[in-house]
Simulated scan of single mutants.
Amino acid sequence: MNNRKGREVCNDLYYWTNQVVNICLYGDSNAREWVLIDCGMPHSKQAIMDAAEKRFGHSGKPKAIVLTHGHFDHVGSLEPLLKEWDVPVYAHEDEIPYLNGELDYPKGDAKADGGLVSELSPLYPHHGIDISSNLYPLPHNGEVPYMEGWNWIHTPGHTPGHVSLYRERDGVLIAGDAFVTVKQESLYRVVLQQKEISGPPKYFTMDWAEAKKSVSKLVSLQPTLAVTGHGEEMEGEELEEALKRLVENFDQIALPANQKRH
């Protein structure tokens, strides 16, 4: 398992695994200005701060936090971090109701697919949070604040306001949970970090028709490297072939059993 391990995938992008979920630290090693993408599991504030200090060589706060979406494993340490850092948080406007106290996410679906992670999912936190005083919508022009050259792409399905981040000049993609590179429903595969392409985590995905469209949208970009919310990074020919397989066989690979046509 890769808990509390990090990896630089290009000179200004580093991802760090917080138990079963990845966060991204954007900025060159030792950069004075940097951006945090997603905020990991609950009770991980200090571990995330330590990882950032190790990456950048100082304890300075980020310029901003960007969220792919607001599920508990991606915002679990957000509120405690904001007490330390008090920085702007950017999310898609369709995700804001889950981040300003208006809405809760649906409970996890225990029958979405076989595996202990799915079976336990109704017990996972599904409540929204309220970070209104720090919360801003992502700019309508598609740019990502403090991340020059990056654009956000609306990739709904897993949640209504899910976004992925993409840099066209080198094809680097931060996919969030639009697709992942581990079968997240299986605790065994999560522990082993067995690399395989998968759709969004089945037990929490809200709209499968939209999720399928979002995967097709990302595949059309022909990314060269992808960091996902769960699992190890994937690049080059391995990524190209895996994404082709996913988009061509989305219903078989991604859909939960209770959504498949018989």
Rank of each mutant, 00 (worst) to 15 (best):
K63L: 15
K63E: 15
K63C: 11
K63G: 09
K63A: 15
K63R: 15
A64V: 15
A64Q: 11
A64N: 08
I65L: 05
I65R: 03
I65Y: 07
I65D: 03
V66T: 03
V66S: 02
L67K: 09
L67M: 09
L67H: 03
L67Y: 00
T68S: 10
T68K: 02
T68N: 14
T68C: 13
H69R: 04
H69G: 05
H69I: 01
G70P: 02
G70F: 01
H71T: 09
H71K: 15
H71R: 13
F72I: 07
F72H: 13
D73F: 15
D73S: 15
D73N: 14
D73I: 13
D73G: 08
H74R: 10
H74V: 02
H74I: 01
V75F: 00
V75L: 03
V75M: 11
V75P: 02
G76K: 00
G76W: 07
G76Q: 06
G76T: 04
S77Q: 11
S77I: 09
S77Y: 11
S77R: 10
L78Q: 01
L78E: 00
L78D: 04
E79N: 11
E79F: 06
E79T: 14
E79R: 13
P80T: 07
P80C: 11
P80D: 10
P80V: 05
L81T: 04
L81A: 09
L81W: 10
L81V: 09
L81C: 07
L82R: 06
K83T: 08
K83D: 13
K83I: 05
K83M: 11
E84W: 11
E84N: 14
E84H: 14
E84A: 14
E84Y: 13
W85F: 08
W85R: 09
W85P: 12
W85Y: 12
D86Q: 15
D86T: 05
D86G: 10
D86Y: 10
V87E: 08
V87S: 03
V87M: 09
P88N: 06
P88V: 02
P88G: 00
P88W: 11
P88E: 00
V89E: 01
V89H: 01
V89W: 07
V89M: 08
V89T: 03
V89A: 01
Y90Q: 06
Y90N: 04
A91T: 03
H92P: 03
H92A: 09
H92K: 01
H92N: 11
H92M: 07
H92E: 02
E93W: 05
D94G: 02
D94M: 08
E95M: 08
E95S: 07
E95L: 06
E95I: 03
E95D: 12
I96T: 07
I96R: 12
I96E: 02
P97V: 10
P97W: 04
